[in-house]
Design a binder for these strands. Structure first.
Lengths: 225, 225, 225, 225
DNA sequence: AATGAATGAGGTTTCATTCAT
DNA sequence: CATGAATGAAACCTCATTCAT
């Protein structure tokens, strides 16, 4: 029985908690189509199954914590941009989005797989607390966004995030590259699905934002990949 | 052992197949948060568990068939509109969308739950064939759409459908009403999530289309609910 | 995968159900100190783990069913005696008791292990229904007993069974032969526990009955083993 | 990490040991239907899980120690009565029994739950030593009892204790009030199980003793509750 | 001595799928 | 064709025990 180094200090424990989330995320990146079992996650973190339950009350709550980490990191970055000194336009926001959301491989897999899935077996109070934390964060970001886009009516900033988020997640589900099909995707009939997800999402978001903010839906100034 | 009337003629068999899909759909409508088990579906169709496997090679493929039926019915309706005699604008398309997609409760639950989920255990050829059929249908609809919206560049009609579809599915996941929270959703901090899905989706689609077709993102002429 | 002969007819199913109870009982006889796992019971019955759940909704309910079978068989035998043509005295009742209760190896092990243990995880309605069935059976036997022991005040016949039962179970727990101690039990200090359970239980019951029925607590007419 | 004051002196250690037993007993009183986990017991004693293993080699042996404490305290009280100056009759002994055994809520729960259960994983020598200590104590009490009940044949005093003990434990298992059934216990079919345990046990013991000592099974002189 | 983080065997239950009837 | 009994691979979670700190 090989026993892992113990996390005694609170900081160490937090680190280990994060390591478990890292492991779970890695499993999602590797196999976006399935939710790893608890033992797999534990093994990936170099820990034993039971140890996971020292850090999370249940598997579902571990996944919820991972999801929250994703969301919060994204909005931290958004807020850093919006509260920062520089000018903010669609491209700036999209840049943050691309980095923290679109290109984070585990993010969308978890998000789309666990919407609703997660809120089933999770204690209601836990689920509500999660929703409240996230809701307030998004509300803040929405308000901040309105400061930079004067055409946004008050209260619609939050909608921009909501709709954009939905579009990103939805498109990912439609288009996310599926390696298993490999060369077969080159058949002409499948052209439709062999799209460049990142490019598409940018175009779609630009359209959406242009509709919502009445800015011109001009094409990106440069190829943005 | 009560034995169901046997389906001998091909037409009877098709009918029974559809009955199974109907049953599966009904289960989704009733419990959008979980995938019914095979025996539940069979029982709901008045058949026995084993019989399902006479009509579908696996559970996953049954769900895929249901999904395909959804998609095809929607696009049939879209094509009927686009190929019909009348004028076509956003509102007309949205009306079809509302009826065949947004208000079909089982549709979105299945779609969001099974994107990717399904492609896992499904034989590659089956999955590809499905994708090809759907892809061609969407391509046709896209071309037809371009005839009615002259501002759409060639090849972008299909994108309108793709992006709209993504937006609808994504928003549903974010906002679809979750009965289990009940009164708790009235807390002010949760205001953000207590939205009117149908109204939001119309607004979001209007914004997206306005961006994509350069039509004016004007509000609906009348309250559209 | 070796598949067991299928039980299709209701009679076959009941037989298989009984076979599972037999298997569970056999495990108790072999290892009275532990409750066998579901797989062990299934394997002992020549079935797969999952099959057990076709016949019992849960492990606990299987054990409860076994317990009920024990109790019912015992009271059937008692009723056969009490309703029979012959005269009935303590010795006659004890003889039935010895055969169906004291010498049934799995009976007492299960009973003492599962009193209270079982009623924890069992649906309340199930537990109540069980109690009601058993309660009525004992009440019947109590009334029948009063017919044969005129000194029993009305309503006390049932108490005779209750107290006797308690005495038997309690004594078994104190004295049931524990093979693991083997020769060590011969140490003089352990003389107290190296009793003859069956003989003791007879003496104790005789004392109890003599007190309850005011019959003479005379020793058995002949060595009763 | 809050570290408890260390127990260095032997007296302190014994005190801590007793505190653990107190805690375990308290858990039994609170939840007679389940055996508390080691960490629950430790927490109830204000100690950490690992500390338990400084005082007891295993959980089972801790429970055995608690059981032994119960038994010994009871027999101490019995001996105090029997060796005391006053006259001794059934009522006097029953009074001690009621106080130290019948009304000790944790006592019977532990006893019935752990008979046999405990002797499984306990080293044989430990189990034997326990049995020997208890055996000698009971033997002493039995002899003392014979001094007060001249009708008891030599060597039968110990049997009175053994059988009484069995009756008390057995009846408790049958009748101990089960709160979870609540109002449902008022159904007429369940009348049988809705007995007054303490009253019943007195009546049963009186019958048993009357049979064993040939004293008259007269009812208690006054309502004994 | 005291702690509590880490372990992992062990147990119950679900359910997609097979196949004898 | 239709049935549903049988299967057994997963999966989650608990908790007694160990041992580094």
């Amino acid at each position: 029985m090989r026993v892992m180094q113990r996390a005694v200090a609170d900081a160490d424990k937090e680190e280990r908690r994060q390591a478990l989330l890292d492991a779970a995320e890695a499993m999602f990146v590797e196999h976006p189509e399935r939710v790893a079992s608890v033992s797999e996650v534990a093994a990936a973190a170099g820990l034993a199954k039971g140890t996971v339950y020292l850090y999370f009350p249940s598997k579902e709550q571990m996944l919820l914590a991972l999801h929250e980490r994703h969301v919060m990191r994204f909005f931290e970055a958004v807020m850093a941009l919006l509260d920062g000194p520089g000018p903010v336009d669609f491209d700036a926001v999209f840049e943050v989005t691309r980095k923290h959301l679109i290109r984070m491989p585990g993010y969308l897999a978890l998000t789309s797989r666990c919407f609703g899935l997660m809120e089933r077996e999770i204690p209601m109070e836990t689920a509500l607390a999660f929703k409240m934390r996230v809701g307030q964060t998004i509300a803040l970001a929405g308000t901040a966004l309105e400061r930079h886009f004067p055409t946004l009516a008050p209260g619609t900033g939050v909608l921009v995030f909501l709709h954009s988020y939905a579009l990103i997640v939805g498109l990912w589900q439609l288009l996310h590259p599926n390696e298993r099909f490999g060369a077969a995707m080159n058949r002409p009939e499948l052209r439709l699905f062999k799209r460049d997800y990142e490019h598409d999402v940018e175009a779609a978001l630009r359209s959406l934002w242009s509709g919502m903010t009445a800015i011109a839906p001009s094409p990106p100034r440069k190829k943005s990949r």
